[in-house]
Nucleic acid binder design. Structure first.
Lengths: 116, 116
DNA sequence: TTATAATATAAGCATATGATTATATGAGGT
DNA sequence: ACCTCATATAATCATATGCTTATATTATAA
């Protein structure tokens, strides 16, 4: 599949890279690119406090790296596939082990949140 | 040309991304990937103090993103092509306008440092 | 050896960052 | 309406970051 190379401003890109340059946020992006995740799942996966996760998600959301969708009590986050830096982000994530295993682990422990 | 995809640890990669997530360092990488640059050239190009540039270069050198080579009074920095994250770094830089124009500007002002 | 030029390091400081605890908000169920 | 659960926000704090100024290195030149 042919991909048009997107050019970004240096400012835009360094902003994205700074966000991904945090271990926790990079992990979040790994997970939400496997499947949409709600906050409590990410809390489990990352072993951090809920407010900490929420604050990271806020930054990712503000930069439009993730989408937010409420389902009842839960708020699910997913990777925004239409971000101007999507190509680069996918390139980066493609060089990392994906988060499938950990998410399956969650499933096995019956800790995944399934809505409708 | 076929490229073997390199996998990195999440920790390693987030460290690299954090370094590139700074506007100044991203610019430095853009420039040294065009051609090796000495400190005073980067000071000119980036319009920052010499110590500031040196400190950024120190971080990039410590992470082995750049190589250092002394030529007389000058110290030249170049992109390390053999970094484990080279592929990703090139991918990132490939989405940015390169620094050729600015470096040519320097040449035109006779401010490039030419050794041997 | 002394002086000079380029770079590196140290010290100081203001701001940014990421975590924690406490509290607020918002949707669902009773 | 009230309670509960999931999430968001506020307040606080310790540490990290990036810049500046001042000083130390290191190599060349006189």
């Amino acid at each position: 599949m042919y991909m048009e190379k997107t050019y970004l401003s240096i400012e835009e890109l360094s902003t994205v890279l700074k966000l991904l340059g945090d271990r926790t946020r990079l992990d979040i992006m790994r997970y939400v690119s496997v499947d949409e995740c709600c906050v409590c799942e990410l809390v489990e996966l990352l072993n951090l406090s809920q407010p900490s996760i929420s604050q990271h998600l806020r930054k990712l959301k503000d930069a439009r790296l993730v989408n937010e969708k409420r389902k009842g009590n839960w708020v699910f986050y997913s990777k925004n596939m239409n971000h101007p830096a999507s190509e680069i982000i996918n390139g980066i994530l493609g060089h990392l082990p994906d988060g499938k295993k950990e998410i399956e682990e969650l499933s096995n422990q019956n800790m995944r949140i399934i809505c409708d």
